[in-house]
Nucleic acid binder design. Sequence first.
DNA 1: TCAAAAGTGTTATCCTTACACCCATGT
DNA 2: ACATGGGTGTAAGGATAACACTTTTGA
Lengths: 314, 314
Amino acid sequence: MNEQVLTEAHQHPVAADLVAVLVAVTGVEPLVLTTQEGGLLPSGPFQLDHRSLQAGLRAWVEQQTRHPLGYVEQLYTFADRDRTEQGGEQRIISISYLALTRQTPVSGTAAAWHNWYRYFPWEDRRVSSSASDESITTGLRQWIRGSGNTRQRQARAQRTQVCFGLEGRPWNEDLVLQRYELLYEAGLVPEARRHGATPAAPLPGAPMRDDHRRILATGIARLRAKIKYRPVVFELMPPSFTLLQLQQTVEALAGRFLHKQNFRRFIEQQALVEETGALSNEAAGRPAKLFRFRGDVLLERALSGSKLPLVRGA
Amino acid sequence: MNEQVLTEAHQHPVAADLVAVLVAVTGVEPLVLTTQEGGLLPSGPFQLDHRSLQAGLRAWVEQQTRHPLGYVEQLYTFADRDRTEQGGEQRIISISYLALTRQTPVSGTAAAWHNWYRYFPWEDRRVSSSASDESITTGLRQWIRGSGNTRQRQARAQRTQVCFGLEGRPWNEDLVLQRYELLYEAGLVPEARRHGATPAAPLPGAPMRDDHRRILATGIARLRAKIKYRPVVFELMPPSFTLLQLQQTVEALAGRFLHKQNFRRFIEQQALVEETGALSNEAAGRPAKLFRFRGDVLLERALSGSKLPLVRGA
DNA sequence: TCAAAAGTGTTATCCTTACACCCATGT
DNA sequence: ACATGGGTGTAAGGATAACACTTTTGA
C-alpha cells in the first residue's frame, strides 16, 4: 500500500468549524439561537488561539450573539456530504455542540431566537397534525412508489411507517434525525436539491444553509433522548419554578403532552427537586408551590441505573 | 472584534486524525485491536480522497490490520490537551469511532488483540479486586490529602467515592472515563506526566501513546452504557450462540457477573433472539439450546421505550 | 359562580429482584 | 454419583398507566 508513505509525512489540512445548537425554552416554546435571519446556527472556525474545541465554541457564540454559554456537550462531527454550498478545494469538518441556557434577550447582534418547530413543523405533536402531515405522507407515498423493485419499495414503506408512526405504530419523538434524513433522501427538503435530487413538492418547514438543519435535528434528537435519563431540563429552568412550568418545558422539547400526575410522580420519584416554600400566582387558578433543583444530588449519587441484572454479591 | 475579519477569509488548517476502538470478545475476554505493540489504536489521517470520515476510518483500519469493519459508530472528537508527544505547530484533532466485530485472527500485520483490562485492570470487577484496588485507593488518598483547602479536599473525596463506589456507594461500571480522568488528574497514570504532574507511584495498567488510552476509556464507557438499551452485543456474537455465551459476553464487557435467570428474562423479554432448533454440547454439562439474533425486529419497531409519561390520546 | 390550575387517592398491571429447585449430560 | 451447566416456578416489592375526584384561587 503506497498510502503507508503518507501516514508519517503528510497531514492533509482541513478546516474545522465549530457549530452550536443553543437551546432555550419560554413558556411552551422551544427556541434555538440563529444568525443570518434564521438561516444558520452560530458557528466559526476552530483557530490556533483556541485552547480547546469547547473554548473556541464559547468564543464564537459569545462574539456572535453576546450570549455566554452554560451547559455544553459535544454532539457529533460531520464531514461527509457536500457541506458547503460553494464547495471549494478544502475539506471542512463541522464539530457540533448542544448548549442549554435560560433564555435571555439577544441585543445588538444579528442573532435571533426562533421556535425550533419553524424548521421541523412535523415534530410538534401537540398541535393537531394539520397541513404538515398531509404533505409529508403524500410526498413519501410518491417516493415509495418511485422506487425500482418491490423489495426496495417495501423497505421504504416500512422505514416511513416506523419513522412517522404510521399503520398503528407508535410515534417516537426521538427519531428527529431519522425523519429528517428520510425526507432528505426522498427529496422533500430544499437542502436535498444541492445533492441533485428531483425538486419535489416543497414541505412546510424553513430550510437552513449548509447542513445546519441536519445539525439542529441532531441536537433536538439528543436533547429529547437525554431528558429521559439525565436531569438536563433544569439547565433550561429559572432558579425556581412550578411543576407545571417544568412539565411544559419538557412538553415543549418532546413535542408531546404529558400526563400530569404521572409526570409529577416521575419527578418526585427522582428526588431532583425540593420546595422553596414560596408560592407562585402568575397563572390563573390556584397558586402553585415553587420548587428548586437540587444540584447536590448530581454529586451524591451517580445517577445511572444499572439496568443489567447483577448478582447480589459482586 | 477583529476576529470577525478572520471568519470569512482564513480557514485555519488543522490535521484530522481518525482513531478506531475496535472491539471483539472471545469467551470471557473483551479484546481491543492495537498497533505498535499495544501502544496505539489503529489510526490515520483523514485524507482528501476519503469520501467520508467513516470511509477514511475503514480504509485505515483495513490497511493497518487487514480487518474489515462491520458495525461502526462515532465516539467523540478530541482536540484539547497536548495531544501529541512531540507537539508540533499544527493542531491535531482526533475523531474517534467505536467498532464492533466478531473476532478473527489478524495475520501478517503489526496489529494485535489485547484484553482491554490490560489497560484498565480496575475495571474488571469479576476478579476479586486485588493489587490494583490497593494501589488506587492509596494513591487517591494521597491526592485527596494533597489538596489545599478543606473544601477542595471534600470535593475530591466525594468524587473519588462516587467514581470507585466507596463508602457503601454502588460501583457503576459506566464511569470508565470519569475514573480514568480522575486517575489522570491525580497523576496516577504515566500519561499525566506529559502534563507536568508529579510522577506518583505508577498504577497497574499499561499506558498508551498520545491520548489513546483516554479514547479507549471513552469507547468502553460508551459500549457499557449502550448494551443496556440497544442490541449491540449481537455484533460481537457468532451467528448462533447459547444464552450462557451471550451472558458471558455481556459480563466481559461490563466487567461484572450477572444473575443468570434474570439475564435470561431480560433477553427473552426483549424478544431479540429465537431458537435455531440445534443444540450445543461444547461445554461440560447439559447441551444448551442455540439461539440466533432476530435482526428483523430492529426494523419492525423502533426500540426506544418512551419513558416519559405520555397522555393517552396523543 | 365558574374556569383554570393545583393537588390527592386508588387501582390493575407490569417489571424487577431474589429465592429455591429440578433436568440433562459427560466423566 | 456427581460436577457442570441448562432450565423452570414463584412470590414480594416497586414502578407505570390510567382512572376519578377535591381544593384553591382570580375574574
